[in-house]
Amino acid sequence: MTLILCHAAKGGVGTTFVAAQLALSIAQRGGQVTAVDFTYQDALKLHFGLLPNQFAPGFAASQSEPLAISDVNLINGFAEKDTEEFLERVRAAGLPVHAGDIVVADVAAADRGLAELLYERADLHLAPLLPDPAALASLTRLAGDTPISSREKTALVLNQLDDRRKLSRHSHHFVRELFEDQLIGTVRRDEAAPEALAMFEQLAKYAPSSVVLPDIEDLTDAVLSRCGIVLAQDQSDMREAG
C-alpha cells in the first residue's frame, strides 16, 4: 500500500479538492486507487459527482459492498477513525485496504492526531496551501514544532494561483524560493472547479479544458515520482516516447 496523506494546517485551502483530483488522475493512469474521506464535512464524494445524500461505505462495509467511481474506490472513514479498533489496526498494519492500493487520505485540518498517526505510515504528506496571508501564516502550525523544511515526507501544493493578483504572484515566488523542491505543484484558480461541484459533475467532464487539469497532471507526475510509483500507462507512454 502506498499512502498519500492530504492534510493542511488550515481548512478551506482545497485539501479535499486536491485529494479528489489526484485520486481521479492516478486512477485514469491505471493505478488502483482508494480515496478515503476522514472529514466530518463528507465533501470528497461531491468531486466524484455524488449527491450530498449519497454515501460512500466505511472501511468495513467497503469490503463487501465497495463503491467505485471512475475507477476510484471511495471510502468514508469518518465514523471509524476514532474507534480504538481502527487506531490499533492503523498503528499495527496501516489502513485496512487492499495491499496494492494507492490510498489518498483526506484529513481535516483540525484533526491533527489522525494526521500525525497517518504521517508515520504515509509515503507522502501533501499539504495544500493558498496564496493568501492566512494560509501562509498557517504554515507555522503545519508540523507542530518541527520545521516544515526538515519534514522529508511533507510536500506543498500551492492551490488557486491567480497571476492577475499581485499577492498571489508574490506568494508563489516566495514559497518557491523558500521551499524549493518541497513545493511540488501549483494549481491555478478556475471558476470551473466550484461550478462542476454545483453541477454534481466531475471537473474533467464539466470543463475538459480547465486550466486545473494540466496542473493536476503535473502534480500527479510529481507525486508518483516522489512515491517511486511507475504505473502501467506511464510505462507504455515512456516506451512510445522512447
Binding site: A137, L139, A143, G144, P147, I148, F174, L178
Partner: peptide, 12 residues
C-alpha cells in the same frame, strides 16, 4: 507576512 515566516523556526 513573508518576513515573519522567514524568521519562524517552525517553518525553515
Amino acid at each position: 507576512v513573508f518576513e515573519a515566516l522567514l524568521h519562524d523556526e517552525r517553518v525553515v
